[in-house]
Amino acid sequence: MSERILEVEDLAVSIPVSAGLLRPVQGISLHVDRGETLCIVGESGCGKSLTSLAIMDLLPKKAKRTANHIRLAGEELGDAGERVMSDIRGNRMSMIFQEPMTSLNPAYTVGNQLAEALKRHKNVSDAEARDRAIYLLEKVGITAAASRLGQYPHQLSGGLRQRVMIAMALMCGPDLIIADEPTTALDVTIQAQILHLLAELQREFDMGLVLITHDLGVVARIADRVSVMYAGQIVEAGSAEQIFTSPAHPYTRGLLECIPVPGKTRPGERLGAIPGIVPSLIGDMPGCHFASRCPLAHGACNTAQVALQDASDSGHAYRCVLPASETGTVDFKGAA
């Protein structure tokens, strides 16, 4: 078995709001091995981004994080202070954000911002930092890399800026990269390029990659394993193949039915839609979070504490009271 880079157990985030205690992330467990890509999938507001920020310990001040374990290459970070975390961030664990247009500081050149990431963590000269920056800019597919160093973010397009962000994340040669919807803000043609690039770099530098997305097409292309999140919880986890060929949770099935499949979806055929809206996560919620929108929900779903349970095959878990054979009957086509 290859090296386990990231291991998160029972991660939760709570934020006090005027109406009570908001619990946007509840009991998240996940792990990533070296050279592996884990995709966290879910709709907007399901807690994907907060999960990634919680792992990086970059949550907003008001948010409180708890976890049994957050281990990076075996080292426990769950109770690490800011000093330890700031030594790790950008060094052994990097993050790429959703908004390339605003994620670079407008006042400094690309070269300055790239070099700064390396010089913070490694004892290198300006020239070495510059060489590393040029090397990585070329790696992420930027032409005339040396001349880009003197440019400011506003002189670059969104796609280029995201490439710069990726190069920046790679400056210190991290073990793990967390990419939070890195392609959402980009043109569709650029999206594919950036994803391809991420997958390629991950293989080349043999890192762990956590890719957060709501785009199942992205997942199908690059994920080794998938965790499906809904309303703050992981509702299903397994290999990409398991998730796509034998989804066990009604929500996962609902998500998959929303996507037209070329050659399979007939012209004029209705796509599936999941009725209702995401429940409020303020306070405790008994029962299954998906119960209010699930066509298969029955009395017990609203009260029973549902744990992630193993489906028939190994490593495939889902959070539902029904056996996997029964959830297969769910149909979202008539729901909309």
Partner: peptide
């Protein structure tokens, strides 16, 4: 946030 993510 990017600056903090770099560990600065």
């Amino acid at each position: 946030r990017t600056a903090r993510a770099k560990g600065l």
